[in-house]
Amino acid sequence: MKIKLRNGGRSGLVLGALIVLGTAGVARAQVKLLNVSYDPTRELYQDVNQAFGRQWQQKTGQTVNISQSHGGSGKQARSVIDGLDADVVTLGLAYDIDAIAEKSGRIGKDWQKRLPDNSSPYTSTIVFVVRKGNPRGIRDWDDLVKPGTIVVAPNPKTSGGARWAYLAAWGYALQKPGGSEAAAREFVRKLYKNVPVLDSGARGSTTTFGQRGIGQVLVSWENEAYLLVNELGKDKFEIVNPSVSILAEPPVAVVDKNVDKHGTRAVAEGYLKFLYSDEGQELAVKNHYRPRSAAVAAKHAGTFPKIKLFTIDQLFGGWQKAQAAHFADGGTFDQIYQPGS
C-alpha cells in the first residue's frame, strides 16, 4: 500500500523536521556542568565559570551553564560517591578524589596523571587570621597551643582545609629542634584542645571567626584568609604568616562516568584545562591562590609572602598514608581530640 502525501502533508513533514532540527540545535547549543568543589572556592569558580563560558562559546558556539556545589571537601566527596551527579570535582585534597575513584568507580584511578602538576592547577597554604592589632600576639604555631588561646579551625574529618592545617601544625612541630612524632602528637593535641568549635568546612570557620566573633585566631586557607580580610575589613583583621606551613595542592578531575552519561566530557575537560591557561591562572591569583604557571607566578612575585613550605610527600609519605594514620576512624585525630575537653 502506498501512502500519498498531499501538499499539506509535505508541509507538515517539513515543519516537523524543522522543529526536530531546531530542538536538536538548541540542545547542542546549551550544555550544563556541575562542579562539586570544596568550601572556599566559591568566588574563584564564579570568576572561572564566567571566563570559561565566554571562551567556550567563542570556540564552539555552545553556551555553558555551570552550577557550583560547595562544602567540606570530604563531605563533597561522599556526596559524589553517594550519587551527586558532578561532571567535575575540584576538591581540597587528592585523597578525596581517590576516595571517589575507589569507592564509586566514577573516576578513573589514573585521574591524577591526566593533567599537569598532578592535576592540581593552583596551590595554597595555611596561614593565620587574627583580630586587628593581634591583641594575643600570635606570631607562629607555638602561640596557638598556649593555654587560654581560642583557636578556630574546621573539622579534619570533614574538611580538606582542616586536614592541611592539621598536617601543617604537625609538620611544624616535627621539624622543630628536637621534634619527634610524639612531640608532634602532643603539640597537635594541645592545639585542638584550644578549638572550641569544629565547623564542617573552611567557610564555616570563617563565619565562626569573622562574623560570630569567636576566637583569637583562625587557622585558614591562605586564599580564604585574604577573602576574609578583604571582605570584612582590613581594619578588623590581619593575616599572620607562620614560619613554616604546608604546600596545599587542591586537585581537579573529570567524573568520567557522569560526563559520559551526560555527554559532557569535551566541555568538562575543556573546563579543567582552562584552569591551567594564563587566564585561568590569573583568576587563581585574583582569588589568592598561588599559580602553577611560572610566568604568572613571576608576574605576581610580590603578591604572596614567602613561607617555608613542605609537601605532604616529604613529611607524611603522601595522602594515603596521612589519611590512614591521622584521619581515618580511630586514627590520631580521633585519639587526641576530645570534644569539650
Binding site: I150, P196, V197, S200
Partner: peptide, 17 residues
Amino acid sequence: DQRTRIVERQQELAREA
C-alpha cells in the same frame, strides 16, 4: 562573652547539621 558566643555557635551548627 567568648563562652556565650561559642555556645550559640555550637547550637547554630547543630541546627544547620
